[in-house]
């Protein structure tokens, strides 16, 4: 997919404008979200979703409200001197985020801050639901990426993979398919625990008991490992890649991925 197509379609219908919410102020840090170089067309879009909770106000810190924050949360407020201030901005990063600060200053990082919805009910699941759908309200269960892919590939998954589209549209690293890639009819993502062992399930047993039951489990696990229609494509892709960074030792699982 071409990047411009993506943005155009996103603007037109698939995504809508999910973050324009009445009475909820938000502040987009000034670097435009999509000001990526045109040469990036047809590259892979990587979405890293950090599961769980995070203290947003101590990660991306609104320095213009620092005094108020210090008043409200005196126990956990970060000393002003430890905060990394961003260029041309009233925002600061947590002191450990120097790498991201540099990326920001180089124009390689954008932030959407203060995202939320009206009269929020404090449900974590609701929030992550809205986030993955890119929609407020209860109209439909599809994710924003899934809706986008639906427009171009309405016959997925029946006619895929095929000669033109040998690769999966999305790979979700982890044990579950990505709600972001949920289309109207199907989910476009394929969950992969370890890209070098495509069909391995995180839920696989580690020891097969010595019994008929164990034999059957072993048999099915073997077939699962053989049967993924995308497995060869993914394995070929993963084998092309090299880890260029020297920051991580060879045994670091994340670095290997």
């Amino acid at each position: 997919m071409k990047r411009r197509d993506f943005i155009r379609k996103a603007g037109l219908s698939a995504l809508g404008l999910p973050f324009v919410v009445k009475d909820v102020s938000y502040q987009t840090v000034l670097k435009p979200l999509f000001s990526i170089d045109k040469a990036a067309e047809d590259k892979v879009l990587v979405i890293v979703r950090l599961n769980g909770g995070n203290d947003g106000l101590n990660t991306v810190i609104p320095l213009d409200s620092y005094d108020n924050l210090a008043l409200q949360r005196p126990n956990i407020i970060l000393p002003k001197s430890s905060i990394l201030k961003l260029e041309d901005s009233t925002i600061g990063f947590h002191g450990t985020m120097s790498g991201m600060r540099n990326m920001y200053n180089d124009g390689k990082l954008s932030i959407i801050q203060n995202v939320g919805y009206e009269n929020q009910n404090r449900s974590h699941f609701k929030s992550s639901d809205i986030w993955s759908r890119g929609l407020i309200g209860n109209n439909g269960a599809s994710g924003w990426m899934g809706r986008l892919l639906d427009q171009d590939y309405p016959n997925f998954p029946d006619d895929y993979p095929n000669d033109e589209f040998k690769d999966p549209f999305a790979i979700s690293v982890g044990s579950q398919v990505s709600p972001t890639c949920q289309g109207l009819n199907s989910n476009f993502s394929m969950s992969v625990i370890d890209p070098s062992k495509v069909s391995q399930l995180s839920t696989s047993v580690t020891n097969f008991e010595n019994s008929t039951y164990g034999d059957k489990l072993k048999f099915i696990s073997l077939i699962i490992n053989q049967s993924n229609s995308y497995s060869l494509q993914i394995e070929a892709a993963i084998n092309k890649g090299n880890t260029l960074s020297t920051l991580y030792d060879a045994e670091n699982i994340l670095a290997k991925k």
């Binding site: 009910n121 699941f125 609701k126 269960a141």
Partner: peptide, 9 residues
Amino acid sequence: ATYSDPVEK
């Protein structure tokens, strides 16, 4: 649905 959707998902 505000409450049932996330649980269902």
